[in-house]
Design a protein around this nucleic acid. Structure first.
Lengths: 343, 343
DNA sequence: TTGTAAGCGTTATCAA
DNA sequence: TTGATAACGCTTACAA
C-alpha cells in the first residue's frame, strides 16, 4: 500500500540498500545518485517506516516517561505539565519521541515499564518522581536499562544518573527566610512522606531551625497527602494548637492553595497574621490571592536536563553516572510578613 | 540477545508459529501445548518484542496525542493534564499506549503528526484542540487516517468524529446565570479567537443577551490571549469604561485567575462589586479566593470518550462518524453576587 | 492441531 | 560507489 524503500529503489534503478544509504545521508554515495534518489522519493511521496527501521536498527528513538499514578488527582499538579514541557522541548530538538505510562496503581505502572523495556518500545526512560522502595527503579537497574531519574534516588545515589534540586538547601532557605522575618513558630506542611522531595525539604526545614537554636516541635510538622478535604483537617488541628505557628512552609504549590483556602476559612489573614511560603513557583503562585512567595525550582530545566543527559547516555554508553543539580531561588511576593505577631 | 520466539519454540519443541499462537491465545492450539509453551516462556523469561509484532501485524496499539504548542505557557493550563488523565485511563483499560507530539510551532506539530502517520508509529490520533484552518486536520482527512477531535471541528462537522461540550449552551447558561442574578452589564473575556471553543462560548453569550433583549456591546467583549501581562491591559480598559461591567464571563479558569488578580489590583471586590463566572472547573476553581463559580465541562470524560471512540473506530473501520456531547453543569461557589450594584 | 515459509520495511554485512 | 542478501522478531497463509 504505502510506498516503500523497494518502490523507490525500483523507480530509481538502484538497490534498496542504496536508497537506505541515501536516507542516512551516507558519505559513501555519490552526490549524483543521492540527488536522483531524492527526487524519486519526493515524486513518490516516500516516507520511511519507523517501525521497520526500529526493528532493523534495534533502536526506537523513543523515550518512555513514567508518571506516578496518572489516575490520581495529584497528576493535576502543574509540576507535571511543566516538566513535560521541558522534556518536550528537549526531545524535539533531538528528534526523539515520547511515550507515556498510563497506569494508575503501582503495579500497573510497573507493568507499563516492563512492557516498554522488554517490548523494546523505548530506548531509555525518564522517571518523573523518586520515592522510597520503588520497584521500577530496581527493575531498571537490574536490567541495566538506561534511565534518568528526576529527583533524588532513594539509595545508591552515586549509581543513578539523576536531575534534582538541592531540596535540603531549598527547604533550609525557605525556613531561613521566614526566620529572617522574625518568625519562630514555623509550621511545615509536606506532601507524601515517601517522596524524596518531601523528605529533603523537611530535612532542610529542621536544619534551619537547629542552626537557629529553635527547638523542633513535632506537632508543627504535618503531611497533607489528601490535598483537599483531608488536608483541611490537619491544618485545622495545626492552627488550633495553643501556640499555633505564625508562618508556614508548604512543600507544594497546589497544597499551598488548599492551605490558603483553609486558613482563610479559619479567619486568618495572609500575610498579616500568618505567613506562607511555598515551593515550585508554578504559574498560579503568581495568580493566587495573595500572590505566593515561592521557591522557584526551575521545573522546566529539570525536564530539559533529564532528556539531555539521557540522550547523552544513549549515544555514548560509557557516559559516566551524573548528578545534575538545578539551582533554586526565592521569588518574593506577598504571602509573607514580618513576625512575630500575637493573636 | 534477548530471548525470542524461536528460542521458546526450540526449547518447547514446537514451531515458532505455534508459540505465536499461544501468545495470541488462539483456540486452534491444544490446552496441552499451550500449557507447555507457557511454562517454557516463563522459564526463559520470554517477552514479545512489540516492534517486531507491530511490523508483522501492521498495527502498533499506540495512539498519538496532539497538543497545541507544548512550548507555550498555555500548556500549563490544567485542561491538558485533565484530558490526559481521562485519555490515560481509557488507553490503560484497552492496552493501548500513548505517544505525544512535542512540537512548539504549528509547523513542528504538523511534522510530528506526519511522522507519526507516515512512519506508521501510531494507529490513530487524538487532537486535543480544535481551531480554524488547521493543517493537521486537513492532512489527516486527506490521508483518511483514523482520528478523533476534542472540540468542535471548524468545518464538515458531520464528517469528523469529535467529542465536545455544547459550548454554545454552556456560554448561554453562564450568561443566563448572571442575568438571573440581575446583572445586565456583562463582560466577556475569551481566549484565542481561532479556537472553536472560544467562538462557541462567545456565541452562547450573545445568544443569551439577545434572548433577554440586552444589547450586545462590542466594548464588553475582550480576548485575553496573553494570559498574564498582556491580559491585564485589556481588563483595565474594560473596567475603566464609563459604564464598566458588573459581571464577567471568563472562558477559562487560568485566565479567570489572572482576571481575579487584575481586578483586585484595580480595587474591585469579587463578588461584592464584581461577579465572575468561569469555565472548566479545574481543581483550582475551588482553591481560588474567592472560590470560583464555574461551568464544569467534565474534562476527564472528554478524554475518556475520545479514546473509547477512537478505539472503536480502529477495531471496526465501518464505525460511523459520531458526535459525542459531554454534558456541562454550573458549579456555584462564591464568585457571583446579585446585581446590579452601582459604584 | 501443528508446521513451513513467506512476508512486514528496514539496516547492515560482504562482495563486487 | 553500489548491489545482493541476510538479518531484525514476529504474524499468517497455506499445507500437512
Amino acid at each position: 500500500m504505502a510506498v516503500t524503500i523497494k518502490d523507490v529503489a525500483k523507480a530509481a534503478n538502484v538497490a534498496p540498500s542504496t536508497v537506505s544509504r541515501v536516507i542516512a545521508d551516507s558519505p559513501r554515495i555519490s552526490e549524483n545518485t543521492k540527488r536522483k534518489v531524492r527526487t524519486i522519493m519526493e515524486e513518490l511521496g516516500y516516507h520511511p517506516n519507523f517501525i521497520a527501521r526500529s526493528l532493523a536498527s534495534q533502536s526506537t528513538q523513543t523515550l518512555g516517561i513514567v508518571f506516578p499514578n496518572s489516575g490520581n488527582i495529584s497528576f493535576q499538579n502543574p509540576f507535571f505539565s511543566e516538566v513535560l514541557r521541558g522534556i518536550s522541548e528537549g526531545v524535539n530538538d533531538k528528534h526523539y519521541t515520547l511515550q507515556l505510562t498510563s497506569g494508575k496503581t503501582e503495579d500497573e505502572i510497573y507493568n507499563d515499564v516492563v512492557n516498554m523495556v522488554q517490548g523494546r518500545r523505548v530506548d531509555g526512560i525518564i522517571l518523573l518522581y523518586s520515592k522510597k522502595d520503588d520497584k521500577v527503579v530496581d527493575y531498571l537497574r537490574q536490567k541495566k536499562f538506561p534511565f534518568v531519574l528526576i529527583g533524588k534516588p532513594y539509595e545508591d545515589q552515586e549509581q543513578i544518573t539523576h536531575v534534582d534540586n538541592d531540596n535540603i538547601s531549598a527547604g533550609r532557605d525557605g525556613t531561613k527566610y521566614l526566620l529572617g522575618l522574625g518568625h519562630e513558630r514555623i509550621g511545615f506542611i509536606g506532601g507524601n512522606k515517601n517522596l524524596m522531595v518531601t523528605a529533603d525539604r523537611l530535612a532542610g526545614y529542621k536544619k534551619a531551625l537547629i542552626e537557629n537554636q529553635i527547638p523542633i516541635k513535632e506537632e508543627y510538622i504535618t503531611h497533607d497527602e489528601f490535598l483537599l478535604e483531608g488536608g483541611q483537617q490537619a491544618i485545622k488541628e495545626l492552627m488550633h494548637l495553643s501556640q499555633p505557628p505564625t508562618a508556614l512552609l508548604v512543600t507544594d504549590e497546589l497544597m499551598a492553595l488548599g492551605v490558603l483556602k483553609t486558613v482563610h476559612a479559619l479567619g486568618y489573614n495572609v500575610p498579616d497574621n500568618l505567613s506562607i511560603i511555598s515551593f515550585n513557583n508554578a504559574l498560579f503562585a503568581e495568580l493566587a490571592t495573595p500572590p505566593l512567595t515561592s521557591i522557584d525550582i526551575n521545573i522546566f530545566d529539570l525536564g530539559m536536563e533529564a532528556v539531555k543527559n539521557l540522550i547523552l547516555k544513549l549515544e555514548n554508553p560509557k557516559e559516566p553516572i551524573k548528578r545534575i543539580i538545578i539551582p533554586h531561588s526565592i521569588i518574593v511576593r506577598k504571602s509573607c510578613e514580618r513576625g512575630s505577631h500575637n493573636y
